[in-house]
Design a protein around this nucleic acid. Structure first.
Lengths: 196, 196
DNA sequence: GCTTGATTTGAACGCATGTTCAGTTAAACG
DNA sequence: CGTTTAACTGAACATGCGTTCAAATCAAGC
């Protein structure tokens, strides 16, 4: 044998995915060519096919990886047994922090859904719903007692949209740092939910 | 002279823009070819260039038209002299109604910003800010009295994201009709703003 | 230092792209 | 009815696309 045993370089593979993510976020999936991705990594286009079956898999891998990591991380971060109002605060802080730190992944995952074929789309949508359900569970747990909500499903959608929107404008060097933004969003989210 | 005087057919031009909108919304700007747009209208690709300078202008025209119409319509719809709490209600209802009725335009205008070149992007961003300023003006008018807000800029961004998110899932045949959705969003928006 | 096999190159494939333009079509006017 | 001209076709252009694959390269193990 020569070189490391195992399949392929464990540097080039991630480098390709990182380059693809960067370029997809900047220009969009369809506007980015395999040759551009290869050039970003310092390869010829043909070499990419040692690591990826086709271009679509590159996008799908990024999205599925993101959604699964998000579900895992939220599993770890959301402590059970908290009172609904505090659970909502925890969710808001987690969501903002996690998404702001991965702005490119979030952007691509929300933006390029229609570039996925039907099966891949269905799987990503399933993972997204699973994540949204965590927020709705919190709202439902407090409905009528800790929260004053007529429709927890609508409130879930409203909150997710409002929270994820932060990634569209947040800049580390902006007027407010992440902690300040999160604090304001916690307050807004709790008021929106009618928390007492 | 032959045919109608004036430059070009006043049917084909709008038909091209309508077809482009439909296809851009469905597949994305980069994934749609001039030949597909032409075929949707029943033309050959070359004929499009009697109506459009280039593909980019097709996208830009759609976006600029949308944003300018939005500004105009909000001018008409938002009655001055209302108390801040009612002005917020009016804004929420207007925004949801206007956006839900133009889901494709909204989708394309929020999605394909990065497909615009720098100058076109700057102009669209300017129009968007002008619209957001209308909401912020309402929040500022009530700040500290009708509303309990620490940061009107942040609340503006949160509200816009939350409201525009409706276009991503709203279906005419869904569980709630537009009026019911709007009513819930009015309540959530007013609570978010700390309205008394 | 030769062998081995993972890794990469570079050319080729068929096909699609945006845009141009000389030529054809057809409707309205004198 | 013939003329005019807006509207459109259809072919051509250079260029780029995703993907394949034989050949070249290179680093580790014996």
């Amino acid at each position: 044998m020569a070189r490391k045993t195992g399949s392929h370089s464990d540097i080039t593979g991630p480098a390709i995915h990182a380059a693809a993510l960067k370029l997809f976020a900047r220009h969009g999936y369809d506007a980015v060519s395999m040759r551009q991705i290869a050039s970003e990594v310092g390869l010829q286009a043909g070499a990419l096919y040692n690591y990826v079956i086709h271009k679509q898999a590159l996008l799908y891998d990024l999205m599925r990886g993101h959604m699964e990591a998000l579900l895992d991380a939220s599993e770890d971060a959301l402590e059970a047994g908290l009172a609904p109002k505090e659970a909502l605060e925890q969710f808001v802080r987690f969501h903002i922090s996690y998404h702001v730190q991965r702005a490119e992944l979030v952007f691509v995952s929300y933006m390029e859904l229609r570039a996925l074929d039907a099966d891949n789309f269905a799987e990503i949508a399933r993972l997204r719903r699973a994540y949204e359900n965590k927020l709705e569970a919190i709202l439902r747990a407090g409905q009528g007692r800790d929260f004053a909500l007529e429709d927890t499903k609508l409130a879930t959608l409203a909150l997710i949209a409002m929270l994820t929107g932060v990634t569209n404008w947040f800049r580390e060097e902006g007027r407010l740092d992440q902690e300040a933004v999160a604090a304001h969003y916690v307050a807004m989210a709790q008021r929106l939910a009618g928390a007492r």
